[in-house]
Amino acid sequence: MPTIEVNGKTIEVDEEGYLVNLSDWSEEVADFLAKEEKVEMTPNHWEVVNFLREYYNEYQIAPAIRVLTKAIAKKLGPDKGNNKYLYELFPYGPAKQACKIAGLPKPTGCI
């Protein structure tokens, strides 16, 4: 199993770099994963990441794209509550890239 090193701590990740144990996540880990993805974390990025984690804690799954865009619209304003803006923040896709940084498992299926 591949691993990453953050602040001297060794953390297990899967082949694609998603955390194996959700409890290994911390803000430093998120920063590290974001750098690997070449995403520069701004407060707006953090809003998305934090919402993903909250939602996951409640439902054991990442939110649907629509649920996410609606939540972001509420937090950052209606002009930001759309798929396009999320792709600006996370170019490889909000579901997959943002989930990785948030330490969540990769959503897979016909998506």
Binding site: E58, Y59, Q60, I61, P63, A64, R66, V67, K70, P107, T108, G109, C110, I111
Partner: peptide
């Protein structure tokens, strides 16, 4: 995916409460 569909009920692994919440949101929309 074959594990998720058998354990949770769908390929995504979307549990019942999340499905309910998502559908309620769509009705609002």
């Amino acid at each position: 995916i074959l594990v998720k569909v058998q354990k949770v009920g769908n390929n995504l692994g979307l549990p019942g409460p999340a499905l309910e919440d998502t559908l309620a949101g769509l009705e609002e929309d």
